[in-house]
Amino acid sequence: MSALLARIAALLGGDARADRVVPPSGATAWLTLFTAAAMAFLAVFALALALATGRLADRWSGALAATATVRISAPAEQMAVQTRRVLDILAVTPGVASARALDPAETQRLLEPWFGPGLPVDSLPIPQLIEVSETPEGIDPEGLRLRLVAEAPGALLDDHRRWRRPLVAAADRIRMLGLLSLLLIGGATAAMITLAARAALAANDRVIRVLRLIGARDAYIARAFVRRFTLRAVVGAVAGTAAGMVAVALLPAAADEGGFLTGLGFQGMGWLWPLAIPPLAGIVAFWATRVAALGELRKVQ
């Protein structure tokens, strides 16, 4: 890898004379530059998406993992007794840090967004909720469920797992799509550079024949083309990456209410990731042009 980078650095640094042998190409150079920039810009967003969904998955599993809820649905006269019993059980259950029964005011506040204020909680058979905080070791949900069934038939344990699973799965899937997009962008860049290099090689067929005739080795002829396309891809990718990073930085910050959803963007060291795009574009361009050039040259004896 470092040998490859050294070769690319040497290539970009020197031998402008070999470069002069191929005529300047004008408009097509700008097209290569523009496409490389556009691909880098897209890559920044794909990267931001992958990183953000990674954080999202972590946050969702983290926030919901440490809590559980027990819901008690029982006839009004038994409610207090069963609540008492459940709290007693929870107090001696390993893995439970604290357990607290929600009072009617809290319950009303929870239901307010759905039913509006002024709901007569007292007159409705609203289940009693008990909020459970887990220790880092966590509870054994199956054991607790069996015990609750035996001692408080109206109690139901919800450890949030069934909420968590699809959310985390969705976040993981989005992250996969982000990474797949990055691969596709890399492949599309390689294809684009290959086509552009082929066109340049075909347009300069005469130059190539002359060079071959006077004893130029394939590597020498290829270098002139490889140098050009690698430079263009790197310069374009630098511009595209910079534009992409600015665009991500200027995204409106996710407000506190949206914290659960997390913002699309980079955080902390995450800002270093997009900086890898220009060197990667250079490596892709280097290989794509080299393979195309050596392939085309083989047709000229």
Partner: peptide, 18 residues
């Protein structure tokens, strides 16, 4: 068979350059 965008002197020197 010359390279048309290079000056004559450069064309003549091309075998050395390559």
């Amino acid at each position: 068979q010359f390279i048309d965008h290079l000056a004559l002197a450069e064309n003549v020197a091309l075998p050395l350059i390559v």
